[in-house]
């Protein structure tokens, strides 16, 4: 089955991105396809490669980036939400790219399920 994933929160204030990551990983392990992971609201902060968590904390930016690399995931950061939060191309972690909200709607149309993670 093909899943679309929407992540509405960043890596540190809320658990939403952690849950989305664990869900996405479990879906891939079960042989499902991830159509796209779309980052909206503060979720755009998941793409910030300047983020430096403490050494004993998980690094969600890197985890998303690595999962994206391993499974060739489409990690899309919303341009409108990103710009107002200072997330630009030059600070995007590997695998993320910036695009419009239309990519989220498209995922809703093309995926079999759209799953929302937020606050």
């Amino acid at each position: 089955m093909k899943f679309g994933i929407l992540v509405n929160e960043g890596p540190f204030t809320h658990q939403a991105s952690d849950t989305a990551y664990q869900f996405t990983k479990a879906a891939l392990e079960k042989g499902h396809e991830i159509h796209r992971v779309f980052f909206y609201h503060d979720g755009v902060n998941n793409a910030n490669k300047l983020s430096e968590p403490q050494s004993d904390d998980r690094n969600l930016v890197r985890l998303w980036s690595d999962l994206g690399k391993e499974h060739d995931l489409d990690l899309v950061v919303c341009v409108a939400a990103a710009l107002r939060r200072g997330i630009k191309d030059e600070i995007l972690a590997e695998g993320f790219h910036i695009s419009g909200l239309g990519q989220l709607i498209e995922s809703g149309i093309q995926a079999d399920r759209l799953v929302v993670f937020g606050d």
């Binding site: 909206y40 609201h41 409108a80 939400a81 419009g100 909200l101 239309g102 989220l104 709607i105 498209e106 809703g108 149309i109």
Partner: peptide
């Protein structure tokens, strides 16, 4: 931001 999303979504024939 949800309103922004709805306005974009309206452009799709859904």
């Amino acid at each position: 931001e949800c309103l922004e999303m709805i306005l974009i979504a309206a452009a799709f024939d859904q």
